[in-house]
Write a protein that binds this DNA or RNA. Structure first.
Lengths: 346, 346
DNA sequence: CTGAAAGCGCTTACAG
DNA sequence: CTGAAAGCGCTTACAG
């Protein structure tokens, strides 16, 4: 029937093979593949039998060429090794997979060009949409690509972007968490973030970065406390970076009495540094994590942290994508609340 | 030039658009796209200018239809939320991405059909190859699919499979680790595995599962100790499952004095259970993890564990895939040694 | 060195 | 209800 090719394996049956075997035209076969009307019960049975016998599967590339949706979706994350993002991807993939979508994973490592690569897959119809779990490029360039397919934002957000967005109320969360630190008596609170810089705007909904910091500052203001800009540290994103930050602070003798770290990972690094030199947590140094990843409760000092509702956000993002794929006019915007999980590091 | 379509975004320029703009034929444009010889410097410049001006990108689907490789690779893992697999994917993606491959992520959740889905992507040329980070199906069915593309195995392996395989010497690792437990005085050692069952063969290289268990038994034998089959627990794969296992053992009053858990995740669950009811680790219960994931040293009881060289294995797997993609005849087989990381849980 | 034409595997009007 | 034919965007012999 179809011949072997010694170099490249085996040639798969095509729609013509099926038609021939069924004694029908390719049009008819195509109709049953696509569940279109106007095909008699009898022929349908014939076609299905032929497909089964041949083990026929339509070739996605050929269908795409004719305009059929690829049923592929990309998901971008900074790093998959951060459990927060692994969890996010897990829910997203689970719910999207059940709808027949295949997930293309793209780690950006914080690079604009990697994110652009993902976005560009939209233009050549490789993917139908992309879920951005972090934002590297500026609003206008991202918005531009939404012409080519569905884009939904999870976790990070940008006020200027008119795109489905699933996020948490970072302002509220950080205000509460900072309030808690103050209430526990911490006076000199450092602030570390994974971002490269912070553009401060008071408006809620501007971006994660800015809203977190404003929440932090609002709590300070209410307590009539001021913030020393030297206690702001950017681009701290890993356990290692947390450790380095602690060591720097310790060496330069500028130790604050509490640190709000940008993630649980960073918090672990800080606590590790503290342990090494005998700085007691939470007594001499309060450490606040962000994320509440699953092992945070099992650390040598159980972490007090701001829980991000990762399951809920991931599921909502997947749903928002599905909806937007069906109807470009529905742009879902959902804001979750953040909870403080009190354990022992603060 | 090319008109907007209000429903579906924008129509991208095609190779014909480029040809028209450059005042040349599509053949010539195709030649420069594919860096084929026989095109004058002059025309090449013309074509490149036209491509740039139009923002032209060849459509992958159309190229695939003509037999060009998709440059897509799938990676299967049981669950991305297990840091061991997140780490594995991370290295794999990093090295493959740098060669221009796009990664399709597939979580199997231990299901055969999910793994088959991945394998089937080979048949319709959606992907050029798949890296299996665990094995769900039987050897013959997997081998069958190797006709359609490159398959490489990492971590798990099957002796019968004639495929590039990157793995660790589980026999040696488990023998050493068990020897260490014995030396520390543990006498009644339970054995938990994530797998559904264990087919025991003595031969090294049969499969991960079997080799781990034989290593364990070999150490027992050398110490003239015997193993109570009731102390074998299968299908224990998460932190939760570890916790449940502990509770069951505790309730039924069958507590061993040590447990070899199938992963660090499971070990954490066991230690959690022990903490809750006041069973001292490692004094009354030794807990051995497997993996050495990054937070294992930071747990409330730093975990003694068998380190799997995840970075090295991932990189080797990616390299093996690249090689096999280029030349089907080179089937790389690499075996890494396992190290015991001694901390405080044993 | 360059171009016209066939064809990859599909879907979709268009006839009948 | 069914089929012949055109065409999606490419690449690749085949001429010249």
């Amino acid at each position: 029937m179809f011949s072997k090719n010694c170099l490249e394996g085996v040639k798969m049956p095509t729609i013509s093979d099926v038609a021939r075997k069924a004694g029908l035209s390719v049009s008819t076969v195509s109709r049953v593949i696509n569940k279109k009307p106007h095909v008699s019960q009898q022929k349908e049975t014939l076609v299905k039998a032929a497909m089964k016998e041949l083990g026929y599967k339509p070739m996605p590339a050929a269908r795409q060429l004719r305009g059929t949706k690829a049923k592929n979706l990309a998901v971008t994350v900074p790093r998959i090794t951060n459990p927060f993002f692994a969890d996010l991807i897990n829910v997203i993939e689970r719910t999207l997979d059940s709808k027949g979508y295949t997930i293309i994973l793209i780690q950006t490592f914080g690079r604009k060009d990697k994110e652009l690569d993902a976005l560009k897959l939209l233009t050549n119809q490789t993917i139908d949409g992309v879920i951005l779990c972090s934002i590297e490029n500026d609003a206008p360039v991202i918005q531009e690509y939404s012409k080519y397919g569905s884009i939904v934002l999870v976790n990070e957000y940008l006020g200027e972007l008119d795109l489905p967005t699933i996020r948490a109320n970072q302002y509220q969360g950080f205000k509460e968490a900072t309030g808690f630190l103050i209430q526990r008596g911490y006076k000199n609170i450092a602030y570390a973030t994974g971002h490269k810089n912070i553009i401060v705007t008071k408006k809620e909904g501007t971006n994660l970065n800015s809203n977190r910091f404003s929440g932090f500052q609002a709590a300070l203001r209410e307590a009539k406390m001021s913030f020393d800009p030297k206690m702001l540290f950017t681009h701290v994103q890993t356990r290692d970076a947390g450790l380095k930050l602690f060591n720097k602070l310790f060496k330069e003798n500028k130790m604050p009495d509490a640190i709000i770290s940008g993630s649980d990972e960073v918090a672990v690094g800080i606590m590790e540094g503290a342990k090494e030199v005998g700085v007691e947590v939470p007594k001499r140094l309060g450490v606040l994590g962000i994320d509440d990843q699953s092992l945070s409760r099992d650390l040598f000092i159980p972490l007090t942290t701001v829980r991000q509702p990762v399951e809920e956000m991931g599921a909502a993002a997947a749903k928002a994508m599905l909806q937007h794929l069906e109807d470009k006019d529905v742009v879902e915007n959902k804001v979750f609340n953040l909870d403080l999980v009190v354990r022992e590091s603060v």
